[in-house]
């Protein structure tokens, strides 16, 4: 197993967040492939029960069980796990108390539902606990995974999700949950962890990216890269588009066009240029965050395995 880290992506626990709709799951999967490149073993985890990974790789729904879902260039492998909070709770209780039958009784009574609801963040405690376990797991003194990539909750909830262990320590003043929580909290605040924020060049995602980074900094949780998804190479930048120019060009290309069409083309080009201006301003906002910014191209043919590989290569090149 290769143990060398990919430069630029030094963290072992890579938490991928972003506003909903920015392609968080796609980027998490691409990052998992990237980090597995060159014979490494990576675990891609989903925590929200959406089965987004299965959909992305066109697989049947993933069980609560780690399994290989994709190979990476150079002999690497990507494993996937969909964490189910209820299963994680039973596993967790079993770790401390051999509950057996009682565990099933609890499940039947809705106790699990209850516990994950009334103890706010209990669900997140379990999920983050599982992440720590996967990152630090060893067999015969060797780490099982070179890296873990998490398709995490969106920007609006990421701070709460990652900080839940600190919250829990406040609520549970004693007991195994307290010590467990402190252990998780320490991992999440160590250089082992990096939170990457996925965005697009639109106002709301960029605003949420900024808010999330400010929040995470306040919580002392390390921030990795800002990943700008679905970018396109700019055209017509700084060019003056006139009707005369277009008319000339169309004639040369042998395309006949009436007045309205020429005027329409100018309108389209100007709207496009306005959009470019907005995008440039948003790029400046992102650069001002002081974190590495990686731009990923828009996938014209939708998200296919080839598309994921393109994104994975771009992520590696960026490092």
């Amino acid at each position: 197993m290769a143990t060398q880290e990919h430069a630029g992506w030094p963290a072992r626990l890579n938490v991928v967040t972003g506003k909903g709709g920015t392609g968080k799951t796609t980027v998490a999967a691409a990052l998992a492939i990237a980090l597995a490149t060159g014979g490494r073993r990576v675990l891609l985890v989903e925590v929200e029960g959406r089965q987004g990974i299965a959909q992305l790789f066109e697989l049947p729904p993933l069980p609560y069980e780690e399994r290989v879902i994709a190979a990476a260039p150079g002999g690497g492998e990507v494993n996937a796990l969909a964490i189910d909070a209820e299963q994680a709770l039973l596993e967790y209780l079993d770790m401390f108390y051999r509950l057996g039958m009682a565990g099933r009784a609890l499940q039947k009574m809705g106790a699990i539902d209850f516990a994950t609801t009334i103890a706010p963040g209990m669900r997140d405690v379990l999920l983050t606990g599982k992440l720590k376990e996967a990152v630090t797991r060893t067999v015969d003194g060797r780490r099982v995974y070179d890296a873990v990539v998490v398709d995490a909750p969106p920007t609006g909830r990421i701070g709460r999700f990652l900080n839940v262990t600190a919250e829990t320590a406040r609520l549970a003043k004693v007991g195994p949950i307290k010590s467990q929580s402190e252990g998780v909290s320490a991992v999440l605040r160590s250089p082992m962890t990096a939170v990457h924020v996925v965005t697009m060049l639109e106002e709301m995602p960029v605003q949420e990216t900024t808010d999330a980074i400010v929040e995470l900094r306040g919580l002392g949780i390390p921030i990795g890269s800002v990943i700008v998804n679905a970018t396109r190479a700019p055209m017509l930048a700084g060019v003056r588009v006139s009707q005369a120019e277009i008319r000339r060009g169309l004639t040369q290309a042998g395309v006949s066009a009436d007045r309205d069409t020429v005027a329409g083309l100018v309108t389209e080009a100007k709207a496009y240029q306005t959009r470019l201006g907005v995008e440039a301003a948003l790029r400046d906002d992102l650069a001002a965050l002081g974190r590495p910014v990686v731009e990923l191209p828009a996938l014209v043919d939708g998200v296919t395995r080839e598309g994921l590989d393109i994104l994975a290569r771009t992520l590696l090149r960026a490092s």
Partner: peptide
């Protein structure tokens, strides 16, 4: 689409023909 008279195919073909003549 403000210039519906020109189809995507026509526009693409024109772009190829005009390569170098960048604005149009």
């Amino acid at each position: 689409v403000a210039a519906p008279a020109i189809s995507a195919e026509t526009a693409q073909a024109a772009a190829v023909r005009l390569d170098g003549q960048s604005v149009t």
